[in-house]
Design a protein around this nucleic acid. Structure first.
Lengths: 222, 222
DNA sequence: GCAATAGTGTCTATTAGACAATATGGG
DNA sequence: CCCATATTGTCTAATAGACACTATTGC
């Protein structure tokens, strides 16, 4: 442990992650009930203090902690903002790098909370409880960052299984944006999107006209 | 000083700033010739290690270091990205929070380099030299962040004196974007911009029709 | 046939770019 | 008057939203 004097010289550095997924085509964010100090029992975004001896970067650290807390590895992790100050964490002057991450909807069941920490997939707009530290501010910032990307045309394919229909993509965008999107306009945009590749001969069938199945293009980046 | 073991437990945390201004209506970024280790003699963005005992946030730290190195206080400072890793700084595992800042063009002459460090206002697209550490990557990221904001309609009024003409704003945007902008389209947008307030009766005169003088609206935020 | 959803077409309002035209000063 | 730049107007192409229409299946 560092002495108090050293605490003044070296801030605590940690990462926090807003892990988004789709459950029943509704956008959800993962919250974890804290087992340890500070604020035991409080709900917070998953995160923790980085370990320079094993982490090669902040992204690596965030991914390591997500694997530790959820047992899943996410396909997309993206920096949102860095928070700082002497009082945001009761342990002292701290720096926290916030990421958002996307988890495919078909991997939600693979998420396992650790034995000492309960988990909850909360509505990111109305989580229904206050979050520890400044994590409410982080939640809003992460949601805004995600929406901004989708607003500007990025396709949230990492929230979907490997194969999906255009309707799936539209539902995902609607869940993120929190509003309905016109089908015709949306598909017009999809036609010019090079990220989508139709899977020849693959259709989703049901009590309606079959829907073309797509996959993400090779080299797709959210 | 921390021992090597402590260095492994606590990363170095520092801030770096890409300080932009306009010189002869050309976009420039401030580089500082490093006086100390590591990489003495190298050119880099101004920055340094934060001091938790005096800094209340990373923004404060970045501002403090800018004042120390340039003797000017900037009207706008904005977070771009946080860089990290064990090798980006030879002193060990480090975290660096990058900001960009805007300096009004009429305050360039107030910038004073310290006695031990030379300064240069470089072209941010082609600085003409390699930068220390990962600062070339930072330079590109800061320029991109600035351009993205202006592309999306933000007015870079913090680069201009308190009073300016619409042509000044257009020239500033052109300098940032690196391309010509159509006068008519630009002014159409300005008409709907609530950030601009015409100064009644104030005109810039010359060998042509007088130009209306504007100021930033109260509460203007870049 | 009917329900349900996939996929397409059409109209319109808005917007950005190109470019022309006009306005108003100094000299 | 002439020059230079401010300011405005016009035309057009591209785009997004609203909404209607057609297509293809299971039952």
């Amino acid at each position: 442990m560092a002495t108090p004097a050293e605490k003044h010289l070296y801030p605590i550095v940690n990462t926090d992650v807003a892990l988004f997924t789709l459950i029943d085509m509704q956008l959800r964010v993962l919250l974890i009930r804290r087992a340890n100090r500070p604020d035991p029992g409080g709900w917070a975004l998953p995160g923790g203090i980085i370990k320079p001896e094993i982490d090669h970067s902040l992204e690596d650290a965030a991914r390591r902690m997500l694997v530790a807390k959820t047992a899943v590895n996410v396909p997309h992790l993206e920096q949102v903002m860095t928070y700082s100050g002497p009082h945001r964490d009761p342990r002292g002057w701290s720096v926290s790098v916030l990421f958002f991450a996307l988890l495919p909807s078909d991997q939600v069941s693979a998420v396992a909370g650790s034995k000492t920490e309960a988990t909850d997939w909360a509505n990111p707009e109305k989580p229904g409880r206050r979050l520890s530290f400044d994590h409410d501010q982080m939640r809003v910032a992460a949601l805004t960052a995600l929406r901004t990307k989708v607003e500007h045309g990025a396709l949230p394919l990492h929230l979907l299984p490997a194969r999906f229909t255009l309707t799936d993509v539209q539902r995902a965008c609607e869940a993120i944006m929190g509003r309905a999107i016109d089908k015709s306009s949306f598909r017009r945009q999809m036609k010019t999107a090079r990220d989508l590749v139709p899977v020849a001969g693959a259709f989703v069938r049901g009590a309606q006209r079959p829907a073309q199945v797509y996959r993400a293009a090779a080299g797709f980046a959210f």
